[in-house]
Amino acid sequence: MPNLRSPVHRVDPRAVRWWTLRGLCSAGLVLVVLLLVAWLWEPARGWLVAPIVLVAAWTAARALVEPRWRYAVHRWETTDEAVYGLTGWVVREWRVAPLSRVQTVDAVRGPLEQLLGLATLRVTTASSSGAINIVGLDKDVAEQVAERLTLVVEQVPGDAT
């Protein structure tokens, strides 16, 4: 039985910074709030020790471990027939969608991504859970790929369900 090979391309190295910032903005924010509460509200301090330790560990994992791990895992590839992505860190996922079923192709840029010159390639199918998101691409690469895929998708007849 042959194995599934990894997709060809890695994501942009700047994605590591993006994942770090994202980890700090989510888990880090919770940590800051907990610390503030502990600082301002003395009676609650005893109860907050365990949550603070847990959230601090989670923040460290999100900011230090997750970005490098994800960068090592994440890969993507597009052909004229399909989009293929490998994502995740603790849970890895290989996902393939045929272009004949694709409904929209977008290059999406959030605020953090704009800051770093990155973009997410989002490919949606008619299934509510069948979208493929390829995060951490260079914004020009993402736009080119989105344009190319859109051209291919437009040539496929049918309503893609």
Partner: peptide
Amino acid sequence: STIALRESILQRRLGLRTVSAMTAA
């Protein structure tokens, strides 16, 4: 319309994968 293979760390140790078939219906 989309096929996915998923594997957590624990699943990897046990040699297991979850196969998901996505569809519009």
